[in-house]
Amino acid sequence: MTETENQLAQQLFNAYQTKHALNANDFTTQLAGEDAAYRVQAELTTLKNQPVGGYKVSLTSATTQKMFDADSPLYGAQVANHFLAAPATVRQGAMMSPLVEVELVFKAKEKLAATDSLEDLWHKTTVAPGLELPDSRFADWFPDLAKNLVVADAAVGGLVVYGTELDTDQRFSSVEDVATPHCTLWHDGEKLVDGAASEVLGNPLKSLQWLVSKLDAQGKAVTAGQRVSSGTFVLPPHLTTGHWQADFDHELGNVQLDVTAD
């Protein structure tokens, strides 16, 4: 790592601890490219000094890739205590500027390999309905934050709330079936948006496969027990106080989250 990269990792960690947002305009020349951004993310993860509970995959639709001027997904490592079993309660002040995404959350039953086919991943994981709350250490980040700053900031990682987990090959009859779930997102009883799993690279298992391959190229892996939030079904609204619920078909069930005022 360069000294500049080390400094950025420390500034992100300080913002993570203090909840004082950084100004993205101050960092427009800090990163030489994506590799540098992932080095900063790795150092930020080390500074958190907590076990890695899994990963989140971002920019898994044509819409979000266009918004962030990208042509492929990106990932962020997530510490273990940022994965919460539903129903969950979160204080609004515990986050900075979060959004709400609806996702499938996979959990590895054994170490995943870059050679795994989609069918292998279908057999080697559990799946659960999920709400991801992306958040950033940069002010006014959505949807204008530079892609490499997104990467450096753990892919704007916040919290992941997951529902009931079941073997993926028991919940879905085939690999292709994983692309077919739909969901509805509600806030305080008001329907906000519908979404479909096919928005996630055509099939959320493809997002998981991309992540496993990307990590392998960096000498890393998804290991047994780690979870992966695989990509949003919907364009995310901002998180506000109140009761949030995502209802999924395919007998996936729902995910409930209450956000309380400070």
Results as ranks from 00 to 15, higher is better:
M96P: 10
A86N: 07
F172W: 06
S97Q: 15
A24H: 11
Q256Y: 04
A42S: 09
R91V: 05
T260C: 03
S173A: 15
G163N: 08
T168W: 02
S97M: 15
G189H: 06
V255W: 00
A246E: 01
E251D: 15
D258T: 14
G76Q: 02
L118W: 05
L31G: 02
V90K: 00
A114L: 05
Q30N: 14
A128P: 02
L74V: 15
L166G: 08
V160F: 09
T125S: 01
R171G: 07
K124H: 11
K48Q: 14
N254K: 08
N6C: 13
L59E: 06
W186D: 05
E103R: 02
A154C: 13
R39K: 11
L201D: 01
V127W: 00
Y38T: 03
Q41V: 04
T45C: 06
V79D: 07
L112F: 05
N25D: 12
Q78S: 10
T260P: 13
P73N: 06
D169E: 13
G202Y: 11
F27E: 14
Y162M: 05
L149S: 04
V105L: 05
Q226I: 01
S207Y: 02
V52M: 09
D144K: 15
A128Y: 00
L47G: 04
T260L: 08
E110A: 07
T126W: 01
